[in-house]
Amino acid sequence: MPRELKYAQAINEAIDLCMARDPSVYLMGLGVPDPKGVFGTTLGLRAKHGDRRVLDMPTSENGMTGVAVGTALAGCRPVMTHQRVDFALLALDQIVNQAAKWRYMFGGKLKVPLVVRLIVGRGWGQGPQHSQSLHSWFAHVPGLKVVMPTTPYDAKGLLISSIEDDDPVIFLEHRWLHGITGPVPEGVYRVPLGSARVMREGRDVTIAAISHMCLEALRAADTLAEDGCQAEVIDIRSLRPLDEKTVVESVRKTGRLIVAEGGWRSCGFGAEIVARAVEQAFPSLKCPPCRIALPDCPTPTSPRLAAKFYPRAAEISEAARAMLGIRETRPPVPASAPLDVPDPSFTGPF
């Protein structure tokens, strides 16, 4: 029986192993050494690695990202943690103008091996400024790498690869994934940046999903299977570099593509995946691709409105049925738990 860990523990273990192996790795972020340990992802690390390498920081997102960039130039490998993506918007000068460019604009003489962990909030009224998933923004910028692991296994393997990578990596964790469990081997292993993963094989429709939407896609695939539809679910997991080949090959096989992501529809990463599929697998497509994404409004706070805001497995399976001409015969199942929490054990507030 393989060992199972929570996603948050997998993150914690990845940082722990990297710090033990390489003295140039350090961890910094607001709340990193606090009693909650960034949703458990940093708990115990200070006791193990000391207060010089596991640090709290001033509430200065831009300045401290610049400091991290500077330490990277001096030979360190900083891992910065922000408790929400939204907070890192204060640091866009340092992330986009500086970290992403220093290698190129100085002719390859300098490198910025920086990891910025950003957490995507959702539910319990996170609202307009605690829930944005801006992966598409970061993935737009040459010089940045962007990964969004879905499983505990990938969280650990991708974080180790990110910390060891010589380029700045934006590492996005969905808050609703921290509590999920899955098999995680002990010791160091790596999941390469730039590789997608087929989570479930199928021949009828490709569902390419990102982060938490992969779980919704797997649920959708379960219900579709009951209707005789074999959905192939791909976890994109690395947005830049993007493993285009895995998606395109799947679309050539199935002829149908649904992209499911937790960002906004317009100018979102889903559009990029659709474009690549259309450019490279147009003759295989049996119907127009479909994007499952957020409607173009800020995140509402009220649970009633938020329930309407976030697409779920039902939207994905409905899109697949529409593509395949399958009529829904089962009556809709009423939600067994509130829709604004990942599972009933989550009782807020953050």
């Binding site: 140039s24 350090y26 010089r52 831009n62 300045g63 401290m64 990202t65 610049g66 400091v67 991290a68 960039v69 500077g70 330490t71 990277a72 130039l73 001096a74 030979g75 360190c76 340092q94 500086q98």
Partner: peptide
């Protein structure tokens, strides 16, 4: 400015 601070601090940490 912060990058200079970081480079000095990182160097000192080493």
């Amino acid at each position: 400015i912060p990058i200079g601070v970081g480079a000095a601090w990182g160097s000192a940490l080493k």
